[in-house]
Amino acid sequence: MNKSMINAMVSMQNLQQKLNIQSHNIANINTTGYKKLEASFQDLLTTRVNQVNDFSLEGRKSSLGVQEGVGIRMSNPYLRTEQGTMANTNISTDLAIHGDGFFEVGTLDGEDRLFTRNGSFQLVPSSDNLDELYLATSGGQVVKNNENEPISIPVNHELTIDDMGNVFAYNKSNPGEAPLELGQLKIVRILSPQYLQPMGNSLYTLSEDKLTDPSLVQEMDLNANSDFTANPDDKVNIQILQGFLEQSNVNLSEEMTEMMVTQRAFQLTSKAYSNAETMMKLAANLRS
């Protein structure tokens, strides 16, 4: 097959994948905590074809070799973790992270470790103790504290979380009673977000070998913010907002503009394929 046709065909396949990613971003523009995916491309194998020596003429400016490639391929989509806008919900179980970090959630047995920016949590009853409620995601994964345990709240208690992620429960029947201290939210920072694997519902995970890599997963102690005046460099630039939800970080106008550029590139590549096919037909007709 003509190399120009191979080049165009491979490029169209990868441009279609980029269009799919952009469509996915636009479809999730209203998804709480969604982080946009961005496609990047790289050249495939290129070769240099030398021309005959007769082309080596005095004063000739063009190269004696012709660079040939076989199109482009899309690298793994890159997760963009920029902060999304905050929406005030005034719901005590809605939480948002202002800064670079993720909530850690998982199953009750602690085997699964998942990360999310979607703080649309809810209180679900415990199957073992009817007097306890768990703070959990809409999918049933429990929110963990800094002791790697689920956050359990007694029934008839009101949940309060400060900006450092400390969890308290106030007795609704006795407002004057001292609050129960339920630990601190477990917030982790993923130092290389490109390793995050999407699991759906704004949940992400890492491969087993990377979950235990301290150079990749860093557990944050937000209580350091209360004592940062001694050494301002020790301040953790993360804050928990109760009653807020982080919106998607997809910018619709930018995404639509980029999609139009990708569509034009697809059309141009499709035209190149069509022209190469026409030239092959002309060559075949000349032979006959």
Results as ranks from 00 to 15, higher is better:
G183N: 05
A283Q: 14
A230H: 06
N174A: 10
L182Y: 13
I238Q: 04
E208L: 05
I153P: 00
M280D: 10
L211F: 08
Y34A: 01
A169Q: 03
L241T: 02
L286Q: 10
K281D: 15
P154M: 03
G200E: 12
Q83N: 07
M280T: 02
L159I: 06
T278A: 12
V217L: 09
N7C: 05
S226C: 03
S248F: 01
I187C: 00
A284I: 06
E104P: 14
L130C: 00
S248Y: 00
V10A: 12
E68G: 06
H24E: 14
K3P: 15
L196S: 07
T47R: 10
N28G: 05
G183S: 03
N28V: 02
N146E: 08
Q16E: 13
F228H: 13
V250L: 02
Q267K: 05
L64D: 09
D94P: 09
E58H: 10
I29Y: 11
I21S: 11
N50A: 10
L211D: 03
A224W: 12
L216F: 06
M279E: 13
Q194N: 13
I161G: 05
S215R: 11
S152R: 14
S120Y: 07
E38V: 10
V250G: 03
M164E: 08
N285V: 03
L268H: 09
R189E: 15
D43T: 08
M259V: 04
N275C: 03
N30A: 02
V142H: 08
L196P: 04
M220Q: 15
D128Q: 15
K36F: 01
T212P: 05
V188H: 09
N237L: 10
F266M: 07
L64G: 14
Y134M: 09
A283T: 06
Y195N: 13
N28K: 13
P214W: 01
V52A: 14
M1R: 14
T262F: 00
Y34F: 11
I187D: 00
A27I: 01
F55A: 12
E58C: 00
Q194T: 07
L79S: 04
F55K: 13
Q247G: 12
F41W: 08
S63V: 04
E208G: 08
P150L: 06
P150V: 03
L206F: 07
S248K: 09
V70P: 01
Q122I: 02
N231V: 06
L130R: 15
G119M: 10
Q17W: 05
S126Q: 10
L282K: 07
M199I: 04
L241Y: 15
P193M: 05
N118L: 03
S75E: 11
G84I: 01
K172F: 00
V105I: 12
S202A: 14
